[in-house]
């Protein structure tokens, strides 16, 4: 579904991605982790073309992302994305947030879009908040709306960029639960996160990045059981054993 081959990316003279290659098969859940500044957020944003890259190739469902001829809007409409800071549109109600791209990009009617929104809101447990504005919701609620907004486009894959990093600890679980459910339903997912509990529970593979490189790309059990690289071992011992 998602093929990433030999991606190099520079910001000016600083190289932030070095020959990154990995893939996400249909129905697979791949967790990308690593210390901050390792390039994992940049890599996931390359997948739907939010960040340009200089070398290499990324294809999503066979469509090359970096190609000049590719209609990026069309491709992005098929890939759902959830951000660290939710990025709901503050001036619109929750329902309007979920309907905007459905109507303007997919051309669905207002009634159709609203029905879809209502269904998804009940699924993420937020039906009673449909008429509120994002600023009136907690972080966890906003992130669940953001997930509903992405799902409303009937995506072929979902990208999550640190979806729980900006949340208060007591709100992390309500978001993770929605994500676990999605994974178990067979959604193709690429998830940048530090939540190793989530990775253990639903990931098929774990990709570990450091300094712009993919250091380890392994089946979940292999990664948690016997990480090959020192850097991954160090990272895991720090992240799993903190008090």
């Amino acid at each position: 579904m998602i093929e990433i081959r030999d991606i190099d990316k520079w910001y000016g003279t600083t190289q932030v991605l070095r020959a990154c290659s990995t893939s996400v098969a249909k129905g697979e859940v791949v967790v990308v982790c690593g210390p901050s500044g390792s390039g994992k957020s940049t890599l996931i944003k390359c997948v739907n073309g939010l960040e340009p890259f200089q070398n290499g190739e990324i294809t999503v469902d066979g469509v090359p992302v970096g190609d000049r001829g590719t209609n990026l809007s069309k491709l992005r409409a098929r890939i759902g994305m959830v951000f660290q800071n939710f990025e709901l549109y503050p001036h619109m109600t929750v329902t309007a947030n979920i309907c905007l791209a459905q109507e303007k990009v997919l051309g669905r009617s207002k009634a159709e879009a609203e029905a879809k929104a209502a269904g998804l809101l009940s699924r993420v447990g937020l039906s009673e908040h449909a008429r509120k504005h994002p600023g009136q919701l907690s972080g966890g609620q906003q992130q669940r709306v953001a997930i509903a907004r992405a799902l409303a486009m009937d995506p072929i894959a979902m990208l999550f960029d640190e979806p729980t990093s900006a949340l208060d600890p007591e709100m992390i679980n309500e978001v993770l639960e929605v994500m676990v459910e999605l994974a178990q339903e067979g959604m193709t997912m690429m998830v940048v996160t530090h939540e190793m509990g989530f990775a253990r529970k639903v990931a098929d593979r774990v990709v570990f990045m450091d300094k712009g490189e993919i250091v380890e790309d392994a089946e979940k059990d292999a990664f948690f059981g016997t990480p090959r690289s020192d850097r991954a071992q160090q990272f895991l011992s720090k992240i799993l054993h903190h008090i």
């Binding site: 098929r78 994305m81 990025e87 549109y89």
Partner: peptide
Amino acid sequence: SRGQSMAGYASGLTTLQ
């Protein structure tokens, strides 16, 4: 914030939209 533009683009909106 730049994230708002990213969210808009990520959902398939054009620059005009």
